[in-house]
Design a binder for these strands. Structure first.
Lengths: 253, 253
DNA sequence: CGCCGTCTTGACTCGCCTCAACCTCGGTGG
DNA sequence: CCACCGAGGTTGAGGCGAGTCAAGACGGCG
């Protein structure tokens, strides 16, 4: 996605509402292609945009926090969101990543009053938000919205299911391989020497996705780098030979 | 729940449609108290029952299989359903348990065409089913149905999230403790000496819920039995001192 | 009565976590 | 411009939790 909001990047409105002027700059076509809105006409899209609040979120900043009363739902226009659960004793687990074009923080649609996790910007993000009071209106007024939303929910359920199965049955090496494969599928960018994960990601992050330690992840990536399967820099991972990673992931069938 | 279908148990129609006579025996009040139908009047409930197919499922029999094309959705009237995922190499993981009164197999509502897992009767079950073509009608015609359904979906998402966090951060002993606590919450029956899990459950089953082996579960239960925390027979577990189990589960906060 | 599914227990092994030390960038301020 | 600092990364040594292998007991059902 190539959003023309370069001006915002240099602007003074960091992490704040961007104001009406920006809202008008947002082209209707931005939403047209997104699944939840794909059946809507230009007028309807305009309606939706007119009541949306656009926000830019800096890397590392939270969109909302675990346990916070849910008053809004969000659409990620650009960037990547990391959804994190924190345990009582302070450990963190990354539940999933949101890629651009996806709704998130939809507690409203699932009968929740608080957010079950924290949403952190994994890189520079542009987000639209609406009050929860709009939710039922969206569902009622916009055909296909409901269906598409719950389709996404279904996909997330699936992904979580798969992770549970992985964690229950696979060794650490396979789990890490699975996570990398999932990441390049969801947020991969083609580069000359392979597929790169399109946002900053540390060994620590990967360990929080796989239920292991950053040390073990580091050892694995080092080994894989030696075998030419991946290439990695600080906060950056590129998979050069995905097929070999698939083998390691234990896709025995 | 105390269903009067004793006659069926002795009947010859094992695992088959039960026929219209049975359908009429199902009292409207059965559905009235269930969340998805709680806002409906008697006439509406009657409509729903009239197009339902009731089925009795024997212990160990499948309601549907993983990968099967989803053509129906189900309501569990009585009994317990185990939802199982099987990996390519034959290992099994128990995703969750369905208790009576819950909808399941709702692939239709989540934009899926096949069932993502297998549903096995953990004990003697009585199930209603409807064709997927009814789904959108239910959503449209019955107020509150949609909301309640997605609330349940939200709860399952939550539960799965918690399991992921547990598997990622906790030791086996804590995970098994968590699972037992969850089971007595969801399907516990008060008995003189504690709370009993209301359906047959083996060490193997528990290991499939926690991502460990039946050996480890056996050792843990033996140890706990010595400390008087649980009492167990073949395929039966009773928690006698839940508070001690809570301590073991690592609820540090 | 015999078989099979369930459960138990011991001995051994090893994958991964823990602890610990050190390196290498990239940014920041004097 | 360089010295410093902190976040991110690497790598080795050692120990333990829990899986694996193995053998057998128990209890229910046909």
């Amino acid at each position: 996605m190539n959003l023309n909001y370069g001006k915002l990047k240099k602007g003074s409105l960091r992490c704040n509402n961007l104001g009406l002027d920006v809202l008008k700059n947002l082209d209707e076509s931005l939403l047209t292609n997104l699944p939840p809105f794909k059946n809507l006409n230009t007028v309807q899209i305009r309606e939706i945009l007119d009541i949306a609040t656009p926000v830019r979120i800096d890397l590392g900043k939270a969109v909302f926090d675990q346990g916070e009363v849910a008053q809004k739902f969000f659409l990620l226009l650009d960037g990547h969101i990391r959804v994190i659960k924190t345990t009582p004793d302070g450990e963190q687990v990354i539940a999933l990543h949101i890629t651009s074009g996806q709704l998130f923080g939809i507690a409203a649609g699932l009968g929740k009053t608080t957010y079950p996790a924290t949403a952190i910007a994994a890189d520079e993000c542009l987000v639209l938000s609406w009050s929860n009071t709009q939710w039922t209106k969206f569902i009622a007024a916009y055909p296909g919205f409901s269906t598409e939303v719950y389709k996404i929910v279904g996909e997330r359920l699936d992904e979580m299911n798969n992770r549970i199965v992985e964690m229950a049955t696979q060794q650490v090496e396979q789990r890490v391989a699975c996570v990398l494969l999932r990441l390049i599928t969801q947020a991969g960018k083609k580069v000359p020497d392979g597929v790169e994960i399109d946002f900053p990601i540390t060994r620590q992050n990967i360990s929080e996705m796989t239920g292991t330690t950053l040390h073990t992840v580091s050892r694995l990536l080092s080994a894989w780098e030696k075998s030419g399967i991946v290439a990695s820099k600080r906060s950056k991972v590129t998979v050069t030979q995905p097929h070999k990673l698939v083998l390691l992931s234990g896709a025995s069938a």
